[in-house]
Design a protein around this nucleic acid. Structure first.
Length: 487
DNA sequence: CTCGCCTTGTG
DNA sequence: ACAAGGCGA
C-alpha cells in the first residue's frame, strides 16, 4: 500500500522513544503505545549534545552498543523495528514522526530537571508542528522508587526511612503484546563507533557482562539463588561473589528498581532470602535513590563540592600520581587490584571503590573530580548520580559524607576484606606467589619470600608511591586548613 | 540537649 | 580506650 512518507497520520504507528529504559517489561511507554492499538516503532536517538544528560564515557558506550543490540533483537522477534538516529532530539523526533507517518509518540518520564526540560522542549515542538500526533503523557515513573521532587534528602538514614515507610511500588508491567509496524530508515549501530576497535580493549568486558534485559534478569535470578545468602556481611568481600552486579543493568534501565524490589519481596515471602540480607540489599537501592535525589536537587553534583568549604581544599594536582593510580601501580595491592579490575572488566567491587577513591583523594591529595572523571570513563555502570555522589561521599565534601579524617588504611582494608589475598592474586598475578599473611604489604615480605614469589619491588611490582602513615598525616594537615571554614 | 549514626584508625 | 564533625530524632 502506498504511504505518505511526509505526513503524520492519526491512525499511524506509535513511536516509542527509548532512552535509558532499554527493556520491554515494566515499560509504561511501550505499554501505552500497545494499548493504543497501533503498530509500534522503537526509536533510539544518539544525542551527542547530551539531551539533558552527560555524554557517556567509553565503557558505558560499549555497554550501550550491547544493550541496543539486545533490545533490537528482542523487538525483532515480534517484528518491531528499533530505529537508530543521531542528532539533537528536538530535530530528530519530528523528522522520524513525519517519515513514519506516526499517530502517536510515547516516552517514559525521566527524574532529573535538566532531562525534564529537554523532554518538555521536544513535547512543545511536536505539539506545535505535528498537532495530529498524540503524545503519551504523565506515564508511571519507573526509573526510581521515589519522586525526588517531593523529597529532599541530606542524610541517608532518615531519607531511606521516609522512602521505605510508604514504599509500595506498583506491580511491574508485563511485556505488552506488540503489533509489528513498518520500518523506516535507520542508522547502522556499527557506524556509531560506540565500541572500541583498535585497540579492542573490551575483551574483559565481554567475558564479564551480558548487556540487555535478559542479562539483567539472569543476573538478578543468579544473585537471589547464590549471592544474597549472607549478603549483609559478605557483600564487603571482593574475593567472593556476594554482590548483585546489577548496577549497569539498572543504569541503562534494562531492569527497574521496582522489578528488583518485587522480586526480592517474593524471595523473602518464600523464605529464599533472609530479612537482614534483603534489607541490606534493598538499602543499596536506597543509596542509588539517595544519589539520584542529590543530583535532582544539585544538578552540578559532578563539578561542585556540596560543602563549599572544600572549595579551598589544598589539592596537589600531579599527573604522575594520577596515572599511577589509574594504571594500578601505587604499590598498595588492594588499590592496584581494584584499579586493574576496573580496567579489565569495567566494574569494581563497591568496597574496593571506597578504598581506591579514598587513596586517591587522601593519600595522593588528588582532587576527587579527577577520580570521578576516570571512573566515569571506565565504569560500565558509570551513573551521573551515583558516581559523583559517591566520590563526594568518600572525599568528605558530600551529603552525609564520611568525615574527612576517616582515612582508610589500605593495608588493614585489604587484610580485613580480602583475608586470603585471593582478590589481589586474581588481578595482580605478579604477586600471586606471596604468602597470604604478607600479600597486602609486599614491601614487608622477607627477601626469601620475595625471591620465592619472583617479586622484585620497583621492577615486577612497584614500591609504595607514598608511605601510609606519612600520607595520612599530610591529609589530616590539609583538612585542618579548611576545617575552620564555615561548612 | 543528649545521643546515635555515619560503609573507621591508631595507640 | 579514644580520636574527629555534623546532622537529626
Amino acid at each position: 500500500m502506498p504511504r505518505d512518507n511526509h505526513a503524520t497520520n492519526p491512525d499511524g504507528p506509535a513511536v516509542v522513544w527509548f532512552r535509558f529504559d532499554l527493556r520491554l517489561s515494566d515499560n509504561p511507554a511501550l505499554t501505552a503505545a500497545t494499548d493504543s492499538g497501533r503498530p509500534v516503532l522503537g526509536l533510539f536517538v544518539q544525542d551527542e549534545a547530551g539531551h539533558g544528560s552527560r555524554p557517556l564515557g567509553a565503557a558505558a558506550r560499549w555497554w550501550l552498543a550491547g544493550s541496543l543490540r539486545a533490545l533490537q533483537a528482542a523487538l525483532a522477534r515480534v517484528g518491531v523495528p528499533l530505529i537508530l538516529r543521531r542528532g539533537p532530539a528536538a530535530v530528530v523526533i519530528p523528522d522520524v514522526l513525519r517519515e513514519a507517518g506516526a499517530g502517536m509518540i510515547a516516552w517514559n518520564p525521566r527524574p532529573m530537571s535538566a532531562e525534564q526540560a529537554a523532554d518538555d522542549a521536544v513535547r512543545r515542538i511536536v505539539a506545535e508542528t505535528l498537532p495530529h500526533v498524540a503524545i503519551a503523557d504523565g506515564l508511571r515513573r519507573t526509573a526510581l522508587l521515589h519522586d525526588p521532587a517531593a523529597l529532599r534528602g541530606r542524610v541517608f538514614t532518615p531519607f531511606w526511612k521516609t522512602v521505605t515507610a510508604k514504599l509500595a511500588p506498583p506491580a511491574p508491567l508485563p511485556v505488552p503484546p506488540l503489533r509489528a509496524g513498518l520500518s523506516i530508515a535507520s542508522d547502522r549501530l556499527a557506524d556509531w563507533g560506540l565500541e572500541p576497535t583498535a585497540p579492542d580493549w573490551a575483551g574483559g568486558l565481554r567475558e564479564t557482562w551480558t548487556p540487555g534485559e535478559a542479562g539483567a534478569a539472569a543476573r538478578l535470578a543468579d544473585f537471589l539463588d547464590q549471592g544474597i545468602a549472607g549478603y549483609a556481611t559478605l557483600r564487603d568481600r571482593p574475593d567472593l561473589a556476594h554482590v548483585s552486579m546489577l548496577s549497569p543493568h539498572l543504569r541503562f534501565g534494562e531492569i527497574t528498581p521496582g522489578q528488583v524490589w518485587h522480586t526480592v519481596q517474593t524471595a523473602l515471602a518464600s523464605g529464599r532470602a533472609a530479612a537482614p540480607d534483603a534489607d541490606k540489599f534493598l538499602s543499596e537501592l536506597g543509596w542509588r535513590e539517595f544519589s539520584q535525589n542529590l543530583l535532582h536537587h544539585h544538578p552540578n553534583l559532578a563539578a561542585a563540592n556540596l560543602q563549599p568549604r572544600f572549595d579551598a581544599f589544598p589539592w596537589r594536582p600531579d599527573d604522575r600520581l594520577l596515572r599511577a593510580w589509574q594504571r594500578g601501580a601505587t604499590g598498595y595491592p588492594i588499590v592496584d587490584a581494584g584499579m586493574r579490575q576496573l580496567w579489565r572488566t569495567g566494574w569494581m567491587h563497591n568496597r574496593v571503590r571506597m578504598i581506591t577513591a579514598s587513596f586517591l583523594v587522601k593519600h595522593l591529595l588528588q582532587d576527587w573530580r579527577a577520580g570521578e572523571a576516570w571512573f566515569w570513563d571506565t565504569l560500565v555502570d558509570a551513573d551521573p548520580a551515583s558516581n559523583p555522589a559517591s566520590w563526594q561521599w568518600v572525599a568528605g565534601c558530600g551529603a552525609d559524607a564520611a568525615p574527612y579524617f576517616r582515612i582508610f588504611n589500605p593495608i588493614l582494608q585489604g587484610e580485613k576484606f580480602d583475608p586470603d589475598g585471593a582478590y589481589v592474586r586474581r588481578f595482580i598475578p605478579e604477586l600471586a606467589g606471596l604468602p597470604s599473611a604478607i600479600i597486602h604489604q609486599p614491601w614487608r615480605a622477607s627477601p626469601l619470600e620475595r625471591a620465592a614469589a619472583g617479586v622484585r619491588l620497583g621492577d615486577t611490582y612497584p614500591a609504595p608511591i607514598v608511605d601510609h602513615a606519612w600520607a595520612r598525616n599530610r591529609a589530616l594537615a590539609a583538612f585542618a586548613e579548611i576545617k575552620s571554614n564555615a561548612a
